[in-house]
Amino acid sequence: MRTYACQCGTPLFFGNRRCVECELHAGWCDVCATTAAVSVEGTCLNCDTNVVACTNRTTYDVCNCFVDAATAADGALCRSCQMTTVAPDPSVHGNLRRWQLLEAAKRRLLYDLRTVGYPDDQLTASPPLTFRFLSDTPEKHVVTGHADGVITINTAEADPVHRESTRQQFGEPHRTLIGHMRHETGHFFWMREIVGHRTADATQLFGDADALPYAETMKQYYDQGPPEDWNERYISTYASSHPWEDFAETYAFYLDMRAVLDTLRWNAPHLVADLGDDLPAMLLSYCQAGIVLNEINRTMGLTDLVPEVVPPPVVAKLQFVHDVFEKP
Results as ranks from 00 to 15, higher is better:
residue 318 L to Y: 08
residue 206 F to C: 10
residue 155 T to M: 11
residue 18 R to C: 09
residue 109 L to F: 10
residue 119 P to A: 09
residue 270 H to A: 12
residue 22 C to P: 11
residue 187 H to V: 11
residue 181 M to L: 15
residue 26 A to Q: 13
residue 200 A to P: 02
residue 234 Y to P: 06
residue 41 E to Y: 06
residue 83 M to D: 07
residue 124 T to W: 00
residue 296 I to W: 06
residue 15 G to V: 05
residue 144 T to S: 15
residue 92 V to L: 08
residue 174 H to Q: 13
residue 113 L to N: 04
residue 244 W to E: 04
residue 108 R to M: 08
residue 296 I to V: 15
residue 155 T to G: 02
residue 48 D to Y: 11
residue 242 H to K: 08
residue 151 I to M: 09
residue 249 E to M: 05
residue 134 L to A: 04
residue 244 W to C: 00
residue 187 H to A: 07
residue 153 I to E: 02
residue 272 V to N: 01
residue 235 I to A: 09
residue 1 M to L: 11
residue 57 R to W: 14
residue 202 A to H: 10
residue 123 L to C: 02
residue 141 H to C: 02
residue 23 E to Y: 07
residue 85 T to M: 08
residue 143 V to P: 00
residue 266 W to D: 01
residue 225 G to R: 08
residue 30 D to I: 08
residue 107 R to G: 14
residue 172 E to K: 14
residue 310 V to C: 05
residue 284 L to S: 11
residue 68 D to N: 15
residue 231 N to T: 08
residue 170 F to T: 09
residue 312 P to I: 07
residue 67 V to P: 12
residue 71 T to P: 06
residue 254 Y to A: 04
residue 85 T to L: 11
residue 50 N to W: 07
residue 119 P to Y: 09
residue 120 D to S: 13
residue 124 T to Y: 01
residue 213 P to K: 04
residue 181 M to P: 05
residue 226 P to D: 00
residue 68 D to L: 03
residue 227 P to T: 09
residue 232 E to I: 08
residue 2 R to Y: 00
residue 126 S to L: 06
residue 93 H to K: 12
residue 76 A to Y: 01
residue 199 T to L: 04
residue 128 P to H: 00
residue 256 D to Y: 10
residue 301 G to M: 05
residue 142 V to H: 05
residue 6 C to G: 08
residue 155 T to N: 05
residue 193 E to I: 02
residue 6 C to D: 02
residue 65 C to L: 05
residue 121 D to C: 09
residue 30 D to K: 03
residue 297 N to C: 15
residue 291 I to G: 00
residue 132 R to D: 08
residue 227 P to M: 03
residue 209 A to K: 07
residue 20 V to G: 13
residue 60 Y to W: 13
residue 31 V to L: 04
residue 311 P to A: 06
residue 320 F to T: 10
residue 7 Q to K: 11
residue 291 I to P: 01
residue 263 T to G: 13
residue 276 G to L: 04
residue 160 P to R: 07
residue 256 D to K: 12
residue 53 A to N: 08
residue 34 T to Q: 10
residue 219 K to C: 03
residue 227 P to R: 06
residue 32 C to K: 10
residue 252 A to W: 10
residue 210 D to Y: 09
residue 86 V to L: 06
residue 38 V to G: 02
residue 105 A to C: 13
residue 164 E to G: 09
residue 81 C to R: 00
residue 205 L to Y: 12
residue 261 L to R: 03
residue 295 E to D: 15
residue 237 T to A: 15
residue 115 T to M: 06
residue 110 L to P: 06
residue 57 R to C: 03
residue 288 Q to K: 15
residue 227 P to D: 11
residue 64 N to Q: 05
residue 149 G to T: 06
residue 121 D to H: 14
residue 11 P to V: 03
residue 124 T to S: 13
residue 108 R to W: 03
residue 238 Y to D: 05
residue 293 L to M: 13
residue 123 L to W: 00
residue 328 P to C: 14
residue 193 E to D: 10
residue 172 E to C: 09
residue 258 R to N: 14
residue 249 E to F: 07
residue 109 L to Y: 04
residue 264 L to Y: 01
residue 149 G to P: 04
residue 285 S to A: 15
residue 162 H to Y: 14
residue 166 T to F: 12
residue 65 C to H: 13
residue 191 M to H: 14
residue 96 L to N: 07
residue 140 K to A: 13
residue 256 D to C: 11
residue 6 C to V: 09
residue 270 H to E: 12
residue 52 V to C: 14
residue 236 S to L: 01
residue 71 T to C: 02
residue 268 A to I: 00
residue 289 A to L: 03
residue 239 A to K: 06
residue 84 T to C: 11
residue 110 L to W: 05
residue 4 Y to S: 12
